[in-house]
Amino acid sequence: MLEIKNLHASVGGKKILKGINLSVKAGEIHAIMGPNGAGKSTLASVLAGNQKFDVTEGEVIFEGNSLLESSVEDRARAGLFLGFQYPVEIPGVSMANFMKLAIAERRRHQGLEPLTSSEFLKLMREKSQVVELGGKLMGRAVNEGFSGGEKKRNEIFQMAMLDPKLAILDETDSGLDIDALRVVATGVTKLHREDNATIVITHYQRLLDYIVPDFVHVLYDGQIIYTGNKELALKLEAEGYDWLINKSE
C-alpha cells in the first residue's frame, strides 16, 4: 500500500528526514515511536503533502502511484488520512458542513454519487458512535472550543467518516486522560480492516495497550534505527531509547 524509499526532507534548509525506508501493506498496523524532535510529525506532514517541507531525495509510492507529485487534496481523495497532532479550529464552519464537503470530494474521487441529506445524517450518526462523540458537536464549528480530548476524538470521527485506505495518526494519544485514550484507541481498532492500514505515531507505549501493532519502528534523528514487534514498545517503555541510540551510533 505504501512504500517509502530513502526519503529525505528538510525545512528552511535544515535536514530533518535523513533517509527513511518503510513498507506498509494492507491489513497492517505500524507504530512509529521515538523521542521528541526525531522527525515523526515531519514524516507525517511530508506524506500528507505539507508544502512547508522540501523533499530533497527519495520516493514514496502509495497504491501503485508516486505520491510526492500530487497535491494535499489529491492525496486525501485517494485515501490518505492524517490525524493531526494539533487539530485546527475553523470558526463559523460547522462540523456537519465541513464533513459534507469532504465526503463529497472523497466520493467524487471514488466515482460515487454524493450522499443524500438523509444518507449523510445517518452516516454521521453511525460514525459518531465509533468515538462516542455526542451529536451536539456536529452543529458546532470545527474544533472551536473543543476540549483536547474532543479534538482528538473528532480526528478519529473524521477518519471514520472518510474511510481512508491509509490513516496516519500523529500523537492522537497525547494529552488524553485514560478514558479518552481508551475511546480513541478502540475507535481506531474498530476501523481497522484487512483492506486498510494505519500508522500510529506515539511516544508512549500506553496507546499500544489498546492498539496492537504488527511492527514498531523507532525513529531517531530522521532515520528509522530499529524495527521490532509489539514487545519492542514494552522494552522502550521500561528502558527508554538510549540503548538503541547508543547501538546505532
Binding site: 505539507n50 494535499v72 486525501a76 485546527v88
Partner: peptide, 14 residues
C-alpha cells in the same frame, strides 16, 4: 495557511 492545509487534507480543493 494551517486551516487551509487542514481542510485540504480532508479532500477540499484549495
Amino acid at each position: 495557511d494551517d486551516s487551509i492545509y487542514y481542510m485540504r487534507q480532508r479532500g477540499l480543493s484549495e
